[in-house]
Amino acid sequence: MAEQGVAQVWRRIRAMYRIEGNKCETCGTHFFPPRPVCPECRRKGKLENYTFKGLGSIYTFSIVRQAPDDFKRQMPYVVAQVELDEGTRLTTQIVNVDPEDVEIGMRVRACFRKIKEFGHSGIIVYGYKFEPVMKVTGHKQ
């Protein structure tokens, strides 16, 4: 037995902190979260760990205005499916943006945020959220 959430979160830390998924070397498909089997190649598939670059664009989104207690402090907040540049999608919050400025196709990058807390005395879960790409002074393309 473990305290609520502890082991459940701990075993996913690499995926949640760094967007570590995997890639099927046979067909070249990237997976996030990591898959135990390539659904296309199945036994012919060869899965290797892959850390995503954390860049992508918004595929679809919503602004959540009724949420469970864990999220009340953040309401209204934006959730989206982000299509990563490697070609797979994930579900995530979009932060550092005004909800009315979000649109399909918007470029975003991964950032590091608190995902949830197991109450006042429980563990804190960290992981990826996404934000609009930021201005970098002096950056040359």
Binding site: T60, F61, S62, V64, Q66, A67, P68, F71, Q74, Y77, V79, A80, Q81, T91, T92, Q93, I104, I115, G127, K129
Partner: peptide
């Protein structure tokens, strides 16, 4: 990650 059930259907609607 904060995607409530209505939010997932909102993804489809959008």
């Amino acid at each position: 990650f904060g995607a409530t059930f209505p939010a997932l259907y909102a993804f489809m609607a959008r």
